[in-house]
Design a binder for these strands. Structure first.
Lengths: 341, 341
DNA sequence: TTGTAGGCGTTATCAA
DNA sequence: TTGATAACGCCTACAA
């Protein structure tokens, strides 16, 4: 690898001059000199060291994204949004899986700060009564003081800007859709225990059923965010009749698990029971699942944009919250309640 | 952020000494001095600059992974394997989506080299008759000379170590499974046109059907790697009777698309037709899809291991190929051919 | 318009 | 065993 010194020597100019033309500086350089430098750089196949650049600038062109698990499509889509924006802006995405462990998140944040990341995006939901939260909050504050932008994609009280959706409202809306179709006994298959997003969606569900005077028919059962959890929860529902009129699953994946359990049991959807999810990932469209579309890609993209567009220096932006809108997408797994039982 | 200079001053020792204890050097340091330095570092919350370290060492602790699209679970699983190993070894994963564009891959490789990445993993399949391949091969060679390890996870003739599976054999084996179940007229729904992996799987399919004397019954139809492609291909198959006895889809996602098309058409699986995929991602287990299990996670993990375990310096390892084994997983979407038609 | 020089934070070399 | 110093490659005052 040839360095700026090599290029300067080859072009017969000072290092500073070479730097000025090659780094797109505003400093004036004569056309002739510029041409010489460019030619030399071309000949030597010069490519600036991103490391050295980052050393002397307020931050590197690295953007970190902390996800619970990249295999979960919820996070893949966010990561895709982050990376598209980052790449277009000349940045590189650093990815880390943290398995919902706040301590791991803390460790990864430190590593990213040590690379002088331009910013770090916290994509995962927080935990209820998280004993490690204070440590993370403190680390986030310090990182921000050092110029690392932080953005959260879920309500976590991290003391940094948050870009998220109203999970409570999303759960409310999908439940309301079921209510409006005439369903009276509705079950919610909850997300993983201990997660804030699980609580938010439960609250939305309960608020809607209560408002509709369906408190008696509303039933929350333990679940999770994957096929197996939804499948298992549905089996439990089936085992304890009467079957509810409708089911809201914690997310699309769980809803798909519910669908397969019902199908295996010979229960018709939406004839005998309606099923809905939340997220609207690829699978939902494919199986015709009624769900709530969440702007996941946009959340990632917007978070990245916030980072790459931000002027350098300590980040003083307060912990504002931007709430993106969601949208009910009615498909074939929900239908008007046909008969009484 | 306090630097090594700060720590040295605080401890009352020379910078070199502080560096020796804090970087775990083999150079001897007295216990007393060591303690002083450690205490000072603790007080100042010292954390070494990864950037400065990378500047003076042969490479950074960054591992790059180039995927076609992280939203595709095939790549998410690989990325997860890479990240798990990288993180455990104290490295950070840089992720880039390249949308199957070799030129983009080339650009991202350059960026990662500019960060002095320890290595770069090419996760995607190559293209047939790719006009940009020579440029990429050259860039890979140069990167390797500069100390960047390169690993490919598909047969691409990149001139670097390759860790992959035998796609030809995988397609052969799943086809053979169908043949052994008595199926005579078997259709292959191909992957995206122009991809090497598409050709390999087709070759395996054709080799198997030919060997079984089923050349007449073997039929290759255009498809793709997603739900929609599989769905559309199945519809075309249905539209032109007779329906084949069995279908091999290019991958699991396409197979799921096939299943839904058949279901919508009221065609029983596996009663009237057997369906199989390739990859064995989460969805396959869930829908009970017969498929071929590919060690995707292990491929990513092994590639990362190769990089983090490799001693620094120019990479001279020849373009060896490690082929990991696959395994047929028979589930409920395939069954013995019941009746003649 | 161009050049000189200092510094970013670390590790490694060479002396002491 | 410890210390001073030279890199690594770049950018940016400051000087000319």
């Amino acid at each position: 690898m040839s360095s700026l010194v090599d290029v300067a020597r080859e072009a017969g100019v000072a290092v500073a001059t070479a730097s000025r033309v090659l780094s797109g500086s505003a400093h004036p350089v004569s056309a002739a000199t510029r041409a010489k430098v460019l030619a030399a750089a071309e000949r030597l196949e010069y490519s600036p060291s991103a490391l050295a650049r980052a050393m002397v600038s307020p931050h590197s062109r690295l953007v970190g994204v902390l996800v619970s698990d990249i295999v979960n499509p919820y996070f893949s889509v966010i990561a895709r949004g982050v990376d598209d924006v980052a790449t277009r802006a000349g940045y590189v995405t650093m990815l880390s899986n943290v398995d919902r462990r706040t301590e791991t998140e803390l460790g990864r944040l430190r590593v990213m700060r040590d690379y002088r990341a331009a910013g770090v995006i916290f994509a995962g939901s927080g935990l209820i009564d998280d004993p490690h939260l204070p440590a993370l909050v403190k680390a986030v504050r310090q990182a921000r003081e050092q110029g690392v932008r932080a953005v959260a994609l879920a309500d976590r009280s991290l003391g940094c800007p948050t870009i998220t959706v109203d999970n409570r409202a999303a759960a409310h809306d999908v439940t309301d859709h079921l209510v409006s179709l005439g369903h009276r006994r509705i079950a919610l298959i909850e997300g993983p225990p201990g997660m804030i997003v699980t609580r938010q969606r439960r609250e939305g569900f309960l608020a809607c059923t209560a408002a509709a005077g369906l408190a008696d028919g509303a039933r929350c059962v333990p679940g999770g965010f994957d096929h197996e959890a939804g499948h298992a929860a549905a089996l439990r529902l089936i085992a304890r009749p009467p079957l509810p009129d409708a089911v809201v699953a914690a997310n699309d994946e769980a809803a798909v698990g519910v669908l397969s359990a019902l199908r295996q049991a010979g229960i018709d959807v939406p004839g005998e029971i309606s099923v809905a999810g939340i997220n609207d990932l690829g699978v939902a469209r494919h199986v015709g699942l009624t769900t709530v579309s969440l702007p996941l890609y946009e959340m990632g993209a917007m978070a990245a944009r916030r980072i790459v567009d931000s002027p350098p220096g300590p980040d003083a932006a307060p912990g504002s919250t931007t709430t993106l809108s969601h949208r009910l997408v009615a498909r074939e797994t929900t239908a008007r309640r046909a008969r009484t039982r």
